[in-house]
């Protein structure tokens, strides 16, 4: 039985791409590979890739989404970031 740490996503906190993750741009968006957990994650929009790459430039995930994502899409992108935090693709700064 392996233990895992459950990380909650606080969108008001500062986040960044995990240092153990390699991001490879693809036509559909990008592939993210976590070298520690061996998880492979498909980011299926280029806008999401832009948000992930630029997260470290913002004081919070909310600020990044506000600046980079059109208004009608923000809830969807917040859900996507929640999923990426759960997969440990993103980590808190």
């Amino acid at each position: 039985m392996t233990s895992s740490t459950v990380v909650a996503f606080d969108a008001s906190a500062p986040w960044q791409l995990n240092e153990q993750v390699s991001l490879r741009d693809e036509s559909f968006g990008a592939l993210a590979y976590h070298h520690g957990t061996r998880r492979l994650v498909f980011l299926k929009s280029r806008e999401l890739v832009a948000v992930v790459r630029q997260l470290s430039d913002f004081d919070s995930a909310d600020a990044a989404i506000l600046a980079l994502v059109p208004e009608g899409q923000r809830a969807r992108y917040s859900t996507a970031l929640t999923s990426l935090v759960r997969s440990e693709i993103l980590c808190e700064r």
Binding site: R39, L40, V41, F42, L43, K44, S45, L48, R76, Y77, T79, A80, S83, L84, S87
Partner: peptide, 10 residues
């Protein structure tokens, strides 16, 4: 023309 998942994991 919004319902597709943005993230999938393997």
């Amino acid at each position: 023309e919004s319902e597709e998942l943005l993230v999938e994991e393997v």
